[in-house]
Design a protein around this nucleic acid. Sequence first.
RNA 1: GGUCGGAUGGCCGAGCGGUUAGGCAGAGCUCUGCAAAAGCUCGUACAGCGGUUCAAAUCCGCUUCCGACCUCCA
Length: 488
Amino acid sequence: MTSELKIYNTLTREKEIFKPLNAPHVGLYVCGPTLYSHAHLGNCRTFLSFDIVFRYLKHLGYQVRYVRNITDVGHLESDADEGEDKIAKRARLEKLEPMEIVQLYAVDFHKVLDDFNLLPPSIEPTASGHIIEQIEMTKKIMENGLAYEVDGTIWFDVEKFAKTYPYTELSGRNLDEMLDGTRDNLEGQSEKRGRLDFALWKKAKPEHIMRWPSPWGEGFPGWHIECSAMSTKYLGEEFDIHGGGMDLIPTHHTNEIAQHQACHHKSPARVWMHTNMLTVNGQKMSKSLGNSFLPHELFTGSHKLLERGYSPMTVRFFMLQAHYRSTLDFSNTALQAAEKGYQRLMNALKLVGGLKTSDTSTCRIAELKADIYNALNDDFNTSVAIAGLFEGVRIINSINDGKDTITTSDKDLLQKLFKEITEDVLGLKEESGAGSDKVDGLMNLILELRKDVRAKKDFATSDKIRDELLKVGIQVKDGKDGVTWTSN
RNA sequence: GGUCGGAUGGCCGAGCGGUUAGGCAGAGCUCUGCAAAAGCUCGUACAGCGGUUCAAAUCCGCUUCCGACCUCCA
């Protein structure tokens, strides 16, 4: 019926047919957030993209174990040796326990992802909960001769590693140029042998709050080792998909692969997926540039660049209208367009169940279904899938207007398709107050009264009801077959 | 500076060798007490300059802009 699922693999730079290592099981690992501040919208886009991957794989019948870590230790501010743990620094500033901060942002993070209707991952491991695994992995890399100790800190020997393994495989960079470009700065970097070397384990300074005992003294794990340790623990030495934001490719993911190979002599993931950045006025949204949006600023419209607020589902739909490997630019007009489109889609979804059926169909539902699945199979092309859905919207409205007809079996197919793609795969849901018994009851009463006054041609009262309802976000529509209403 | 990506109609955004993307906005029509909604019709775009080809938004080259990475970043 439809094509096979193809996924763009950063490693090979092409779309490949997806073949799980141990079907029907699929292992998916995504680099999660570092919890030292609120997650901004750019972060959300990445997790949303992988939410689609997770949902669609499940929809196709795979049993997916989706692991997304939480980084609550490590992550140095710079790779200079006076680098300070980001979380510890923030803790000192706010006079809070590091774990208190982590907790604060973790709660916020989960709340936001829930607002966006992201499915929780199967496992959400924390770095602090896997110190032992990280130490064990570091030991093994040392045994394999690819790491060395300098004063309680363990460094990964990139140049030595690169003699037997393709270190720059993922980034496509030229190793010699990378070494050339940085060699000048080696002075003052006395601890490590090569400028590209990175820490697997860092010695803790006396003032350092987060610290754990290790064979090399008290310290904390390096910036990349957590993902290697945790992905191996929960998904095995080799698994199907590893993902994250594009900006992780040259350093984090490159080093992750290196560590993993140095330890297990094989590459961790078969497919590497990377999402593109969210931009504002053409520039990457990032904390350091100060152009990042917090989700709640977007929902309430409190950000200075926003004219008003936009609902989580509007934003979700907006992001899904672009492909995950393209940049997506954020603006008021784009958001407003998405809001309208999203509402139109949801209205059709509500309409489809009540469509009148006929003996014949004047629309081709099977074809529409194939188009949508082909789009999703083509590297999760939600943009094209949504275009297909809008073709369905047109069909639904047209049947509803009595201009097209549909058979019972076609209607069932269309309804199933709409429900599954919109709700299960794209994760869009109705978010208005509609649907609750109380609101429905109130609306039925109000519309009943309005019907009475209209029968008496009291249009002044009739219009007043309609206008006042509109002010609270409920739109009344007088159709041929009675009155309907929508809420936003 | 090095490396790698982009430039698509008023806006957002797919497509990446030949066929309509889609959404929003705009215009007209139908329906309607009015409105809204919905349907139909219309806008015929691919940064510029060369080249390859029967055929290019899509491939190649050059130019101009823009961005990302090279330092933590989703």
